[in-house]
Amino acid sequence: MTATDASDDARARLTAALVRAGEGDRSALRQVYQATHAKLFGIILRICGERQAAEDVLQDVYLTIWRRAGAFDPGRASPITWMATIARNRAIDRVRSSAIRRTEPEDAALAVADESPLAPELITQAQAATRLHGCLDTLEERQQAAIRTAFFDGLTYAELAERQAVPLGTVKSWIRRGMMKLKECLGDVR
């Protein structure tokens, strides 16, 4: 079996488990948890920066997935993207609703590789990943860095400007120009 087949197969199994969880099958939710918790925890921990808070968010995310799995539309989104988006949004909500002053991650384990992507595993079709990373590479360094940091750390414009020590308008223009180039490069998603 090729790597792509294996990844398709894993995605199909995850989709099936999520659909069963949506029908109230708790063993299916456990299967979803086993297949995805390390990925979701990585996303959340990166944004929260602190294990305790990140575990609270992770627990919350699976309870949300359990309640919302019935609404998951396999034709619309990949299961892991759907879950990763919930995880990212909940982590951002958690950080912004608390008064925690975020600092740059000091733990090397929290740093995100910004060179070659890891194996695309379950996440997305390898093709889409290759295309996005190829397109990101066409952006200016600072545009690319701003978009990556915003995505991985869940920062606002104000936080991004502070961290990069540049005026807010500058960061905004990097992001907007970068996103325009990215869209041109990627073409239609629909």
Partner: peptide, 10 residues
């Protein structure tokens, strides 16, 4: 979404 691939599992 493909950027999620870059976040290491924890």
């Amino acid at each position: 979404a493909p950027l999620f691939d870059l976040v290491p599992d924890m």
